[in-house]
Design a protein around this nucleic acid. Sequence first.
DNA 1: ATTAAGCGAATGAACGTTCATTCGCAAAAA
DNA 2: TTTTTGCGAATGAACGTTCATTCGCTTAAT
Lengths: 188, 188
Amino acid sequence: MTGGKKEQILDAALTLFTERGYHGTSIPEIAERAGVAAGTIYSHFDSKEHLVNALYRRTKTKMIEQALAGLPTGGTVRHQFHELWTRLRAFERAEPTGFAFLELHHHADYLDRKSRALEVEALLPIARFLDAASRDGHVRRVSAPALMAMVWGAFVGLVKAERVGYLRFDDALSDQVEATLWDAVKSK
Amino acid sequence: MTGGKKEQILDAALTLFTERGYHGTSIPEIAERAGVAAGTIYSHFDSKEHLVNALYRRTKTKMIEQALAGLPTGGTVRHQFHELWTRLRAFERAEPTGFAFLELHHHADYLDRKSRALEVEALLPIARFLDAASRDGHVRRVSAPALMAMVWGAFVGLVKAERVGYLRFDDALSDQVEATLWDAVKSK
DNA sequence: ATTAAGCGAATGAACGTTCATTCGCAAAAA
DNA sequence: TTTTTGCGAATGAACGTTCATTCGCTTAAT
């Protein structure tokens, strides 16, 4: 079976790209951490650029499946928001390095067309949710992209603050912040 | 005079480090963009690492002076928040590349002790503002670091969304978002 | 005439990538 | 059963390139 080593390489690359960035990580370093020879990486990926794109797609797809796809369309808008928030946080808890990797490599210029297409696909469920909520007058009269950027930005801000040691993003804080942001977003 | 070329080098480095990252930018590239020889960079900075630290400090100091230092301590808390928001946005408008550079290089491992000390110094005025507001019961009973991370994160989220073309962060939107965030933060 | 500033070719280390070779194992031959 | 053959996966030394940094020289200033 060939899957074993390929996964090892992707896992090693995830850690190193997240810690030191794409250009700050060398192929020999990835090979060493993965426990394979440098040449082996090239029997699984055409180039360093193909590797980072494969990793980006694997990680982003996981996030879409676990956090964004199949959000409930029924129930109250508040409940839908709760579901989105909870799943997003669950994904970040389960895959903190993956989440950080996606943030760090967002719109990087070595991402190819296929990877960029995934970015848009990820935003679609949120955009649909906000559009529906806006149409029904449940959220503030602020443009959907702006609300999205605010809420997403706040979430990322909290995750980064935790990573740097400024706070602990535990369940209690998550509930408080969710309530705070909903208060900000909901129509008055 | 030596200042002319030094500034040119710093300006070139700011643009390139922001566009391609620290490891993605070479010294010869910086030299070419600055219109100086590669060797000249080394008569102004000991190394690439010293250069990025000098640039970080120059940029962060500007942001502290223009946006964070000397915030009003009198007046209503709402007015203080308005002042903070307005100055932050003014700085980002005046120096978009500088703002992006600081975001990108936040807590990077090639920053030295002096540079990291500036990060804390930058946060002090905001922390003081939030502590005072919290003591007087004007803001939500959520920890100050969490409120800070949320508001800062939302701001950064909007700036990033604009850079990528998802929205236009104009005065009207800025006012709407400021009001929205204050609504979220203020005590109920 | 002396000094300082700037230059850019030169340097060695490290990079991404290649490729001749080896390895481990399953199927075929004995 | 034991041996041989064949093959894809894995290896790591070696390649050309690019990197950060140095240094002997030229130019300009005093």
